[in-house]
Design a protein around this nucleic acid. Structure first.
Length: 424
RNA sequence: GCGGGCGUCGCCAAGUGGUUAAGGCAGCGGCUUGUGGCGCCGCUAUUCGGGGGUUCGAAUCCCCUCGCUCGCCCCA
């Protein structure tokens, strides 16, 4: 193919689809505003080390999915594969935590070099929430309820909240030892992927989809049993909080999540309608990350929501209509054409949505386009009108007669006209 | 990185070895040089993702390649 194409896994969002995205974005903004959460925007490009240290060297994301390159200063740079590390970096860099806990959200493109499939692109978009400086189980619940209510408000049905606790760092370390020891004993019965992960990332073995491995795992030491009393109490509080808000959830002891920084609460919101990539929103607590990246010891919870997957679910329902046009300006002849844009501008300044036909085509053509544009009204300007500085206002959606009026009266007439019902 | 499916006009799509590559939608032009929605007429792929091969002859068969897609893996 001779013509240029977008890079694999990097998709264009065409005008017919942007209204739905805009609806999601503005709905999310509303939820964040009402929950006193402020927006933060960070660069798309960061020093590679941030992600290597933050997300974990052993993770798939860091190990094989990052867009990494040397810039002209020979510095290793990486297109962000997720949002949390950048937000934490920014919060540390600007000393935001010295002003107290931070309630933040972010949105935008993320990049992961993976094979594209349904619900998975190389450039994809997330909206994320981070609550930094909050240790209490209630903040876990609040983070979850914000995501839950946002999805409900958007009208996404058929969602399931899956919940697990990974325990404290100590719990995990202790459990990790037990698990590795057990896995070593059963090494020969594991699938190849799981064998490779015994030391690199043993908890991920729990989440293996290999059927034989899953059967075997029934006899493995359980993470839940390794939790300290405090961790168990904490997890119970999260569950009680969700119960109190009547948010249904299912416990999933195999939910471990792929990023190293999680501790205690881990959760995913999934849909059965998404195919293989079922997770719409995933998150959890990451009490160690801020300190690990050089900041003050700071407890935190957060989540990220996949826009493409969400939109996929939404677009199975009713389409969002584009905003209708109020007026379409039709003009022909030099004097008339000179008047068209000023007339359109006048109406736009009054808040009306106006398209101005600049083709100079025959009136018939312009009316055809006016009709197809969906505009309620057409303003017609020919040489006769131009000479008198008037326009003809025609209701395209009713049988009411045309009005001939001076430019100064156009906006008023339009506003009055828009009140009247269109043809059924 | 590994499997499976697919690739004919902007979109949908017929055609499966015989030479002029159906049709529909959209678009453009006309009937209709100041009034749209309907209708009618016309135009829009020397070419079938790209390259190579087989053949007298290929969109149709073979090879390579690119892309899309679904799944594995992983994750949002």
């Amino acid at each position: 193919m001779a013509s240029l194409q977008s890079l694999r896994g990097m998709v264009d969002l065409l005008p017919e689809h942007t209204p739905l995205w805009q609806r999601v974005e503005s709905t999310a903004r509303g939820h964040f505003r009402r929950a006193a959460i402020q927006e933060i925007r960070t660069p798309l490009l960061e020093v590679t080390e941030l992600f290597a240290r933050g997300i974990g060297e052993a993770t798939d994301v860091v190990g094989k999915e990052m867009y990494t390159f040397l810039d002209r200063g020979e510095r290793s740079c990486t297109l962000r594969p997720e949002g949390t590390a950048s937000v934490v970096r920014a919060v540390i860099q600007h000393g935001l935590l010295s002003q107290g806990p931070q309630r933040l959200w972010y949105g935008g493109p993320m990049f992961r070099y993976e094979r594209p499939q349904a619900g998975r692109q190389r450039q994809f978009h997330q909206i994320g929430l981070e609550l930094l400086g909050f240790a209490d189980a209630r903040s876990d619940v609040e983070a979850i309820v914000i995501a839950w209510d946002l999805l409900a408000d958007l009208g996404v049905g058929g969602l399931a909240l899956e919940l697990n606790s990974l325990g404290s760092a100590d719990d995990r370390a202790r459990y990790r030892e037990q698990l590795v020891a057990w896995l070593e004993v059963h090494r020969h019965q594991l699938d190849a992927d799981s064998q490779a992960r015994i030391h690199a990332n043993p908890l991920r073995v729990l989440d293996s989809k290999h059927p034989d491995t899953q059967v075997l795992l029934a006899g493995a030491p359980a993470l839940a049993d390794a939790l300290s009393e405090e961790s168990q109490e904490r997890f119970a509080q999260v569950q009680a909080g969700l119960d109190a808000l009547e948010i249904p959830f299912v416990l999933n002891p195999r939910l471990v999540r792929g990023l190293d920084y999680y501790s205690h609460t881990a959760f995913e919101i999934t849909s059965s309608q998404l195919g293989a990539q079922a997770t719409v929103c995933g998150g959890g607590r990451y009490d160690g990350l801020v300190q690990q990246l050089g900041g003050p010891a700071t407890p935190a919870v957060g989540w990220a929501l996949g826009m493409e997957r969400l939109v996929l679910l939404l677009s199975q329902g009713a389409a969002v209509p584009a905003q209708p046009l109020d007026l379409y300006v039709v003009s022909r002849g030099a004097a008339a054409e000179a008047l068209a844009l000023p007339a359109a501008r006048l109406c736009r300044r009054a808040g009306l949505a106006v398209e101005c036909d600049a083709s100079g085509a025959a009136f018939g053509k312009q009316f055809k386009r006016a009709d197809r544009s969906g505009a309620r009204f057409a303003a017609v300007i020919g040489d006769a009108e131009a000479a008198e500085q008037v326009v003809v206002l025609k209701d395209l959606r009713s049988d009411r007669p045309e009005q001939r009026l001076p430019l100064a009266e156009l906006v008023g007439a339009l506003r009055a006209g828009l009140e009247a019902p269109p043809r059924a």
